[in-house]
Design a protein around this nucleic acid. Structure first.
Lengths: 229, 229
DNA sequence: CCTACCGATCGGTAGG
DNA sequence: CCTACCGATCGGTAGG
């Protein structure tokens, strides 16, 4: 392979990779319909036909963006399942992995949220193949925890996980709206909503929040509760 | 006013009103960018210039759709606040009103969800003026309930309500995705996810779910819990 | 990978 | 002169 060929291959991969990066950013911000191929080409710094040289059509660019997200999800999957089996704060570990997956790159959440609205059927297939295994496994752990009396007996594991997943996606996708809608201090807003998000997920699963998982509050008197029966 | 004038006025209102109806449906399904003025005109059954006679621009159609949603929200507001002050199952009453507002017309949820993604800044202003008052009032009731020991002491009222609002919007907006993603029986799916949604909202607010609110399960032994301390 | 284009369709507006 | 529209077409841009 000549030096020129290697350089060309490297350049080709650069254009391809940065097209996916820029397209994800643009699709997240303006949607698929709201993004022109020219916008992507401009962001990458090449011509529109150059983009269409790497991807047969705009639809292929979309698929590459979704594949990129899916690939990172499958990469995070082992960590997610490992977190579920590990001892200790398993809930915080799993929720943390899930939350970080989207909050580390909110564009992922925005693209997925848009796909939910634009093409529910296509996203359904994608979820069946990629989210269902994770969901089934984690649901199994919740079911086991239920039998040990750790969780509410009336939790619908799959529905619970779907709702929490949706909540994490929506919260990270719309962080700018939710936070600045009411908050004036930019520093406090993020922690506030993140903490409440985790609290909702935890408190709707565990009848009693272990004090160890909630170091911010005093253990005993902070939570008043009626005795059962 | 002549018969002809009355007829013309009525027709004018018909076109205007049904334009808003059809535009909301199309914007919900395909987004603002994904909907052509011609699509709206076709759905109404008039020409494209006819639509532009009633609305100076496509942007005005969008604003009319948002105004329609906002108007129904303001119409539902008294019921929402009344539900919060009433005796008995106040939580179920408020949550029910909120849930019905979107589930009765899922296109409202989809349009709002799209606005969150497309124009977070504009939606922020809209929320400030229209959701904040409701939010402040209901947050006040939660604060009062906290002092009476009804709720978790570490609930962030505003953040909790925003997340629940987002969850209701997302769940109703993506009902087709969430339900059919895992479920095969089309009858069971809706109730399942709706029930779990309400359960999450309730259980993350009330340390102990009153048996009266959960008739599906036996009262005493269905929920095993550690004694606090 | 570029310039130079295509059939079509975009939002919006002309004269009648 | 008004209204509520029409058929045709405007300048630009879409994907290809």
């Amino acid at each position: 392979m000549s030096v020129q060929m290697v350089a060309a291959r490297a350049h080709e991969n650069d254009v391809r990779a940065s097209t996916v990066v820029e397209a994800m950013r643009l699709f997240a911000a303006h949607g698929f319909e709201g993004t022109a191929l020219q916008d992507i080409a401009d962001a990458v710094g090449v011509s529109k036909p150059a983009v269409l040289h790497h991807f047969p059509s705009k639809e292929h660019v979309r698929q590459a963006v979704l594949d990129e997200i899916l690939s990172h999800w499958n990469e995070a999957l082992p960590r997610l399942l490992l977190a579920a089996t590990g001892s200790g704060d398993r809930f915080d570990a799993v929720f943390g992995e899930l939350y970080r997956f989207f909050s580390n790159n909110p564009d992922r959440a925005r693209v997925v949220a848009r796909e939910m609205l634009d093409r529910p059927g296509e996203l359904r297939k994608l979820l069946r193949g990629s989210v269902k295994p994770w969901l089934g496994a984690v649901a199994g752990y919740i079911r086991a925890g239920k039998e040990r009396g750790l969780h509410y007996a009336d939790v619908d594991e799959e529905a619970y996980l779907i709702h929490i997943l949706l909540l994490v996606i929506t919260a990270t996708a719309s962080a700018t709206v939710t936070s600045s809608a009411l908050e004036t201090d930019p520093r406090s807003r993020h922690d506030r909503y993140d903490r409440e998000l985790a609290r909702i997920a935890r408190a709707s699963l565990f009848p009693s929040v272990p004090a160890a998982l909630n170091p911010k509050k005093a253990a005993g008197d902070s939570r008043k509760r009626k005795a059962p029966r």
